[in-house]
């Protein structure tokens, strides 16, 4: 059984991330973002999800111990919303308040083919959003994977490490391929 923990950054949908993983028969648990990396590591996890949350990454650069996880992890990490923004900032990208914040239903367009995290997802699909900030400059070592009309950096991945960031929310029911994306992430964690 693959073991993926969810780091709780205070999001409304943290528990939904846990639920989606549990529904996929992943061994999962919600842990506070104040947990030491060593403690996570000693539990032999295969991957980590950094949840979203109310913290404004566009205004401050704090998200518990998420920086420590990104620095030390040798397993895959999926950053969602604030988790994604923090990941971008941590690796030298830029995050600012959105000119046009997105809430609710948005059309996502994939920009690259054959990306494992988006396996089985159509080029255009409906995703659900809820953000005030966004990544406006991609970190150097990252590739851009998806965009929407009003937010050009909707998904990214590290070129050399298994680190993924999503601005939209794959964990909610209304995101068309949400569960598929979690399934893909779980498969990446099995490797």
């Amino acid at each position: 059984m693959v073991r993926i923990y969810v780091i709780d950054n205070g999001g409304q949908w943290t528990h939904r991330e846990w639920r989606t993983l549990r529904d996929l028969d992943v061994d999962t648990k919600i842990v506070p973002n104040t947990t030491d990396f060593q403690e996570l590591y000693s539990e032999e996890i295969d991957g980590l999800v950094l949840s979203g949350g109310a913290p404004r990454i566009g205004l401050t650069n704090r998200l518990g111990k998420c920086g420590e996880y990104l620095e030390k992890a040798d397993f895959p990490i999926l950053g969602i919303c604030a988790g994604h923004q923090f990941m971008a900032r941590f690796f030298g990208g830029e995050v600012k308040p959105s000119k046009i914040p997105e809430f609710g239903k948005i059309e996502l367009t994939l920009l690259r083919e054959d990306e494992e995290i988006f396996e089985g997802v159509t080029k255009k699909s409906i995703v659900w959003e809820s953000h005030n900030d966004e990544v406006i400059v991609l970190p150097k070592k990252f590739l851009l994977l998806a965009e929407s009309e009003n937010c050009k950096i909707q998904a990214m991945r590290h070129k050399g490490k298994p680190l993924y960031g999503l601005q939209f929310h794959p964990e909610v029911e209304h995101t068309a391929y949400g569960e598929q994306i979690f399934k893909n992430f779980a498969n990446l964690c099995k490797k």
Partner: peptide, 16 residues
């Protein structure tokens, strides 16, 4: 149920 305590907020989560 879960949405009741999630939306009610705490030290970590905003109160919706």
């Amino acid at each position: 149920i879960a949405p009741d305590w999630i939306e009610s907020g705490n030290h970590l989560r905003d109160t919706i």
